[in-house]
């Protein structure tokens, strides 16, 4: 039998091959966005050139075009604004609901919690047709406010579910002690539970925000004017003029949008996973 060292080497090499192959496949489009962003158009469209490298000097022209001649910054602004309002609505509704379901309602609170989580599974592609009617009844068609109103319908369920788990992990004794010390139930919630859950609440803020940036179907359905669009819809639909794709600027927009969201999301990923796997991992 081969000595152990040799076989450990084989296992190590196989493991690294898997890591690298997947990293290359998964990361390649982002490398591609990066190199396309800085390539001259003449370089991009010359089939004789090696596409993996710069054959001509890099250029900032695509970035200039993106920032000065398109609505890109407007879309970023719209998205940030919508994200902020959605986060606010989500917190106002989900934090108290999660606390109530975790602590005040006994057994059926948990059932109700699962029920709320299940609504997260109802897809936008089932609801967008009736919702488009609701939106126009509210007079919000083609307005950024349409998505601001609709997005909490999926950020609230997931946030409530996450926060329920969070509140449950705080020992009951702490609240009991606070109430023995003279706080009311509401007082204990506001003065004790909320400060103790800052990291949970922060997680919810990040997720509600990133979900807004990632959403596509509702924004595509409800908003038809370029100036009111979010980044996720604006870039793939309104940056294309007719049939002409400005690939350089398009890829620049993709890269600039993806990376910050990626970094933000990555920071809080573990909590997010907990939300999905609760119970199944034990």
């Amino acid at each position: 039998m081969a000595p152990r060292r040799a076989r450990t080497w084989v296992a190590l090499i196989v493991t690294w091959i898997v890591r690298i192959v997947f990293a290359v496949i998964l990361g390649f489009p982002f490398y591609w966005m990066l190199i396309t962003t800085f390539k001259r158009t003449s370089d991009l469209y010359n089939l004789d050139n090696n596409p993996f490298i710069f054959n001509e000097r890099p250029t900032l022209e695509h970035l200039r075009l993106l920032f000065t001649e398109t609505l890109f910054l407007r879309w970023v602004g719209n998205t940030v604004f919508a994200g902020a309002v959605v986060v606010l609505i989500t917190l106002l509704l989900a934090v108290p609901a999660a606390y109530a379901l975790a602590r005040l309602t006994g057994g059926w609170g948990a059932q109700l919690g699962i029920g709320i989580f299940l609504t997260y599974l109802v897809p936008s592609t089932l609801l967008f047709i009736p919702l488009s009617r609701v939106i126009s009844l509210l007079g919000l068609q083609d307005s950024l406010w349409s998505v601001i109103v609709v997005y909490p319908s999926f950020t609230i369920p997931f946030s409530t579910w996450l926060l329920m788990g969070f509140f449950k992990s705080i020992p009951r004794d702490l609240e009991d002690a606070a109430m023995v010390d003279g706080l009311s139930r509401w007082g204990a919630f506001v003065k004790l539970m909320i400060p103790m859950s800052t990291s949970g609440i922060l997680t919810v803020v990040i997720f509600a925000f990133t979900l807004v940036t990632q959403e596509f179907v509702y924004a595509l359905t409800f908003i038809s004017t370029a100036a009111h669009s979010t980044v996720g819809v604006g870039v793939p639909t309104f940056l294309v003029r007719g049939d002409v794709f400005y690939w350089g600027s398009l890829m620049a927009a993709c890269l600039i949008t993806s990376l910050p969201i990626g970094v933000l999301y990555n920071t809080f990923l573990d909590r997010f996973i907990e939300g999905f796997t609760v119970g199944a991992v034990k």
């Binding site: 982002f30 966005m33 990632q214 996720g232 819809v233 890829m251 993709c254 993806s258 990555n266």
Partner: peptide, 24 residues
């Protein structure tokens, strides 16, 4: 770093990632 790289396709807005592929 690997985890970040590997996660990007999920965390980047899917419409944006798809446009990247449309170019590829």
């Amino acid at each position: 770093f690997f985890r970040f790289l590997i996660l990007l396709p999920w965390v980047a807005p899917v419409s944006i990632g798809s446009i990247g592929w449309k170019w590829i």
